[in-house]
Write a protein that binds this DNA or RNA. Structure first.
Lengths: 229, 229
DNA sequence: CGCAAGCAAATTGTATCCAATTGACCACCA
DNA sequence: TGGTGGTCAATTGGATACAATTTGCTTGCG
């Protein structure tokens, strides 16, 4: 366990991801390989590998010979991500109602307490914790594959919310988290799923409903395809 | 559209993936970077990037300073992949019952016809087509995120089946594919999901039930962790 | 004054090169 | 004989160097 699994690539990968999620790197921002590289004191090779992974995760997009950019999910993409997220998280709930591990509730409640602790002061930490609650749920299913996918969509949702949401402070209402836990504990999968649906719906809603007819670039990008090049 | 999106990395990536799925590269086989590189006539850098992606997709695993190997999913892992696959594919069905695009049935039926054409002569092509049917279903939802995930788990399932299944010829019963289409066309989501569950259950079953108490290395690998190094 | 061609800077795509870690083989010793 | 330590080959981790492509600007012409 003590083996330092962190190859440099992993480190850069994590750092960039965190920076993106915390909005230090804003959507659309360019990520030149050597700039990032010298910033972290590593060579382009490393940065490149990290960027490849991030692209796979949907947090950055790369254009041929143009470089990497922090992803700017369109509303359509956002819709798609949320759709998958609902599907996955519903299944998480369903599985947890069948097989919640022993220490599960303790860990969940500990997490919620942590969320409540930083409730007032919003900001990066609260956003991160909100996401991690959902990842923790996935982890408790004991299914690493499911966990990875949930993790990915949650991260993308964070990015999406940073683009489209009006207010971040209440992205994940902590009490809804508690309600989900309670419903699972009661073994009431149906209700837990309903709460989760409502929970995610609310989050997605804050993004979708703020649909001032899309920012100009978003609209134009839609038409721009036709005259690309 | 004509832009040759294929950077060399993409090409190698695709080639390796295809080779793995078609079992030209068998699970557990080593993939030394320079060997692969000189085989394809590219440098290690390229192979490296391709391997990073394949690892992300779960088709290869890499051990620090040891290199890359074609993944050998344990039965546990296999279980996890199938669990996620069922979740995702059920959602695909559900979505398609709501919004099947106009040309959808044509494309599906064309595909099934293709499958029937090569039905007798099993082999790589039939395996590939069977997988692509499920990917095609996902594509028809119009959700690229969902499509990518389905695509990934389907590929991993192909790998898994190549490890654990006794007979490949009937991995995906073509008539079950037809039944799914029919159920969706009837708008009967419940029935379509049932068929799909049964369909996937049968596939997974062929793997899981052949559970001669696991090959020796599989068992030992379970205990081996403790004395790893 | 607007537009097109062309040039220069910047950045990615790819290859090669060095260093560090690993695993294996072999000799040596209790 | 079994275990231990050391040296060596092999292979990856990482950095640097070169080539190709794109971009934006400049310049010249209509």
């Amino acid at each position: 366990m003590s083996e330092t699994k962190t190859t440099l690539t992993d480190a850069v990968h994590d750092l960039l991801r965190k920076a993106i999620i915390e909005q230090a790197l804003k959507p659309g921002m360019r990520l030149p390989e050597d700039t990032v590289g010298e910033q972290f004191g590593v060579s382009r090779t490393i940065v490149r590998h990290a960027l490849v992974r991030l692209e796979h995760e949907g947090l950055v997009v790369t254009r041929r010979n143009r470089g990497a950019f922090v992803a700017e999910p369109s509303r359509d993409e956002a819709q798609h991500v949320f759709e998958v997220r609902r599907c996955l998280e519903n299944d998480v709930i369903r599985l947890l109602c069948e097989r919640m591990p022993g220490s599960g509730y303790d860990r969940l409640e500990a997490h919620v307490r942590q969320e409540e602790a930083v409730k007032g002061k919003d900001g990066p930490v609260s956003i991160r914790l909100a996401g991690e609650f959902h990842v923790l749920l996935a982890e408790l299913t004991g299914n690493p594959v499911l966990t990875r996918y949930v993790s990915e969509v949650v991260l993308r949702c964070s990015l999406i919310m940073s683009l489209y949401a009006r207010s971040h402070s209440s992205d994940c209402a902590v009490d809804e988290h508690s309600q989900v836990i309670a419903a699972i504990r009661a073994g009431d999968a149906q209700r837990a799923i309903e709460i989760m649906e409502h929970h995610l719906g609310a989050v997605a809603g804050r993004a979708a409903l703020s649909a001032q007819p899309d920012s100009i670039q978003s609209i134009l990008s839609h038409y721009g395809k036709e005259l690309a090049q």
